[in-house]
Design a protein around this nucleic acid. Structure first.
Length: 260
DNA sequence: AGTACCACCTGACGGC
DNA sequence: TGCCGTCAGGTGGTAC
């Protein structure tokens, strides 16, 4: 599921494959993903110039055209990118195809069609307009404290709220709370200072490790929850049982013995 | 402000 | 074999 580490990995993929090539054609196959932009406007904004840089905030990827516009992509839960030569068959579920003048093609695929394709003149303004919280990657302890301050209620829904902190989804929140030893339904305003520090430190380490490993769960350390995200599996730490419950309306996997 | 629920969408999977 | 219901996920909306 594209959460922050996945989107960061896609950003690096675009950097490595798709910059500095002139966009020659653009095909929109799924207009339901277009947000506040017509097919015509998307073409006008992007065709004719190369992409020259990328950025990311939370789960949004920004790809900048040297023509001046930002292409904004959100991946929902099944969004992906693949770059290949244009003589290859178009990937299944391609929603947006970008053809470069040199024969390369970048395809944005999205099987379940939850996601966003948008255009903006200013990336920061787009982020502000969405009211996204600070990016979860590299957030400092002070800023992290600020994010939690003044909130009540359960920890998990707060960390998943993109307007509080941007980039975390169901799986990485479960992972972070598991490794930090905190219950998902723990009231935020009840955390001690050392628990906040531990949560912050754990989050930073998990995101960095996941990105280093290209967000591929199979290459994550064996002690991670994501390697055994199903009820009844044994906890890697205590050999107790991983349970599944519902917190904030979302399926939640955690270890009652390790998380308090 | 927090919570609870629904809708969007479709592939995967379990039950019968 | 195949039908059918349920779930998964991120987000945005609404109602309480």
């Amino acid at each position: 599921m594209p959460e922050l580490p996945d989107v960061e990995t896609l950003k690096r993929y675009v950097d490595a494959t798709s910059l500095h090539r002139r966009v020659q054609h653009l095909h929109v196959f799924d207009t339901s993903l277009l947000e506040d932009v017509s097919r015509q406007k998307l073409v006008a904004a992007l065709v004719g110039a190369p992409f020259d840089r990328t950025t990311r905030h939370g789960k949004y990827l920004g790809v900048h055209s040297s023509g001046g516009s930002w292409l904004l992509l959100h991946f929902g839960m099944t969004g992906d990118l693949s770059a290949q030569n244009r003589d290859r068959e178009l990937p299944e579920f391609t929603a947006l195809e970008i053809d470069f003048a040199d024969g390369l093609r970048l395809a944005y695929t999205n099987a379940r069609r939850l996601g966003t394709i948008a255009v903006a003149a200013d990336f920061d303004a787009f982020v502000a307009d969405r009211k996204l919280g600070p990016d979860a990657l590299g957030i400092g302890l002070a800023a992290f404290r600020d994010v939690l301050a003044g909130h009540h209620g359960a920890l998990k829904p707060l960390l998943m709220n993109q307007q509080v902190i941007a980039g975390l989804g169901n799986e990485y929140v479960d992972e972070t709370l598991y490794q930090a030893g905190l219950r998902p339904d723990r009231p935020v305003d009840e955390l001690s200072d050392s628990e906040v520090k531990r949560l912050h430190r754990t989050l930073a380490r998990i995101l960095k490790t996941a990105i280093d490993r290209h967000a591929d769960p199979e290459s994550f350390p064996s002690g991670w929850l994501q390697r055994r995200r199903s009820a009844g599996r044994s906890c890697p730490r205590c050999a107790g049982e991983i349970v599944k419950s519902r917190v904030g309306g979302r399926a939640t996997y955690w270890c009652p013995a390790c998380q308090s």
